[in-house]
Structure formats: structure tokens, C-alpha cells
């Protein structure tokens, strides 16, 4: 009984200390931002039903998207290579092949109408600063603008891969990959992927010269990006451990909530795509998580059996001692 009492005392003091230095201290140090579940409540809902065929004409024609964006699934190549694009616009405009599945429809519509507003970058691009966001606003193609925007969104959704085919690396590359590098290789479906740079996966080179040429391109791209954003966005290799899922998700949802004035735009992904991005970061920074859980189970079973035997041994040895 006395030992049980001592155990309770030790446990209580340990848990109090744990509570104070972990959950309590962290609640005092870090701002808690609640997720809105990627609903983008501040953006207006789509009122019109889009038509993909009309949308295609707009995207390729009057919408002028293809002037800057590639759409590889539609056979439309990029007008410029990534480095030149970044030197012209600050960042390489994304390929739109999977924009319709990665980004939220409301967000896409708002982005087409007013990019700086949808991206939450109005603190940077406004009348006072005299700067305008590199992507121009869409002022309509002569008809009902809401209808036209809905049509373009419908087209982007129609060409994107279906939700279930969106892989973690596709989501990451479309949503984050033009600003953030990830310098750890990773495995996906049994295939090893090379480190990710802002201009794509690093290829394997036969000649050192070619490798250096590629690295020079990456540096040129990063220089342009740094000039555009004020700082080079961090490599995300270990972000799943350094920031964790909650922080990354809420940061993608609203970067300004954590870092007022940051140049990082709202990403505008759907909840499902956000999960894929997280999965990608886990594949890169915490690839042994499944193994950890599996081995953990067996070790716990082993150690509990060990403890039972240890208790039985003690009882046996101490039988004569009392």
C-alpha cells in the first residue's frame, strides 16, 4: 500500500512537470490557429454552373491563360523555360493540368478574378505600393463574367486527373513545388524519386558538366525567386517533424495568420489535396512511420511479457524472504 502511495506521488509530480513544460509551455509560446477545413469562407461561392467546352475556349483564347501557363495534358507546352519565366514573373507560372483537382473551385474562381485578393497578398500588391501581381486580373470576355469564370474552372476540373488518382507528389509539386525544394529522395509505389528542386526533379547526369549546368539553372531560378519573395522559401524536407501536420495545414490555409505580412500566398488547395501534400511530406521526412508503428506493437507485446515474467520471478524469489 505504501509503495502504491509512493508511486502515485512520483507519477503525479512527473505528470505535472510534463504538463507544464510540454502542453502548457507550448500553448504559451505558439499561437494556435484553428483550421477552417479548407472551406475558404471569405471567398464567394460559385453561383453559375460551368461548361467545360466553353471554358476550354476561354482558357485557350480570351482568358489568355495559355500565354503564361502550360497545360501539358492538353498538349500545350510552356511558353518559357522555368528560369526565364521566374526571371520574368518572379516565379514560374504553374502548369494547369491538375489545377482543377488540387485547388478549390471557389479559390480558382476568385484567383482568376482577382489574384492578389485570393492569394491574400493585398498587403504587397495594392494601389499604395504601386505594385501589381504578376498574373493579371480577368475582366471578362464580353459576356457574363461569373459564367465565364465558372466555365474556365469547369474546364480545368475536366482535364485534371480524378481525385483518387491524385498522388501525394503531384499534389505537392502543383501546390508547393515551384517555390519549395525538398532535397531528400523518397519512394512512392516502389519507385525512388530524386530530390525535388524548384525546377523539377533533379535528373541523373552522366557528365559532371551537365550536372553543374542544371545546378546553375536551379541557382538562377532561386535568385529570381529570392528577389521576388524577399527570401528563399525554405526546403521542406523535414517540415513534417519541425512543424507537424496541424501547423503546415493551417499555414497553407492562411499564411498571414502566423506570419503577418509574409510573401507566401494562400495556397488554396482542397482539403483532400492538403492531405496529399502532408502525405508527401511524410514520405519525404518520416518515411519509416509505418514501420515504427508496426515494430512498436511487437516491442510493446514483448516488453509486457518481459514485465510479467519479471514480476513472477520477483514473487518467486521473495516468497522465502517475507
Amino acid at each position: 500500500m505504501k509503495e502504491l502511495f509512493i508511486l502515485v506521488v512520483v507519477t503525479v509530480f512527473t505528470l505535472v512537470t510534463y504538463y507544464l513544460v510540454e502542453p502548457f509551455a507550448h500553448s504559451q509560446m505558439h499561437k494556435h490557429v484553428e483550421s477552417e477545413g479548407f472551406t475558404y469562407k471569405d471567398l464567394p461561392a460559385l453561383t453559375k454552373k460551368g461548361d467545360a467546352t466553353r471554358g476550354k475556349d476561354l482558357v485557350m483564347g480570351a482568358g489568355a491563360c495559355a500565354g503564361c501557363h502550360s497545360i501539358e495534358v492538353a498538349g500545350l507546352p510552356a511558353p518559357m523555360d522555368p528560369v526565364t519565366a521566374a526571371q520574368s514573373y518572379g516565379v514560374n507560372p504553374p502548369d494547369l493540368s491538375n489545377a482543377g483537382v488540387v485547388f478549390d473551385a471557389k479559390f480558382l474562381a476568385a484567383l482568376i478574378k482577382n489574384p492578389a485578393h485570393a492569394l491574400m497578398l493585398e498587403h504587397k500588391y495594392n494601389e499604395k505600393s504601386g505594385k501589381s501581381y504578376p498574373m493579371p486580373q480577368f475582366y471578362g470576355a464580353g459576356g457574363d463574367m461569373d459564367q465565364e469564370v465558372a466555365d474556365m474552372v469547369a474546364y480545368l476540373q475536366s482535364i485534371a486527373v480524378p481525385q483518387e488518382k491524385l498522388t501525394p507528389n503531384m499534389a505537392f509539386e502543383t501546390a508547393c513545388g515551384r517555390c519549395h525544394a525538398v532535397h531528400y529522395p523518397y519512394a512512392l509505389d516502389g519507385e525512388i524519386h530524386a530530390p525535388w528542386t524548384q525546377i523539377g526533379e533533379k535528373p541523373t547526369f552522366k557528365h559532371k558538366q551537365d550536372e553543374l549546368a542544371f545546378e546553375t539553372k536551379v541557382l538562377d531560378y532561386q535568385d529570381a525567386l529570392t528577389k521576388y519573395l524577399g527570401t528563399l522559401p525554405p526546403d521542406l524536407s523535414m517540415y513534417i517533424r519541425s512543424r507537424g501536420e496541424h501547423y503546415i495545414k493551417t499555414f497553407m490555409e492562411d499564411p498571414q495568420a502566423y506570419l503577418k505580412g509574409t510573401a507566401m500566398p494562400r495556397v488554396g488547395v482542397t482539403a483532400e489535396a492538403a492531405d496529399k501534400v502532408i502525405e508527401h511530406l511524410e514520405n519525404v521526412g518520416d518515411s519509416k512511420r509505418h514501420k515504427r508503428e508496426e515494430i512498436g506493437k511487437y516491442v510493446m507485446i514483448y516488453i509486457i511479457i518481459f514485465a510479467i515474467f519479471a514480476i513472477l520471478w520477483k514473487k518467486e524469489v521473495w516468497r522465502d524472504l517475507h
Partner: peptide, 21 residues
Amino acid sequence: LAKDMMVVGIFLILFFYLVFY
């Protein structure tokens, strides 16, 4: 030692719980 190992056994349950989870 028998008593020690009993306490060690219980401690290791906590320890490995922390290691994995």
C-alpha cells in the same frame, strides 16, 4: 535483483511506449 528487474520491466513498458508513440 529480482525486485529491481520487476521495476525495470514496468519502466521499460513506459520507455518503449515513449520511444514509439
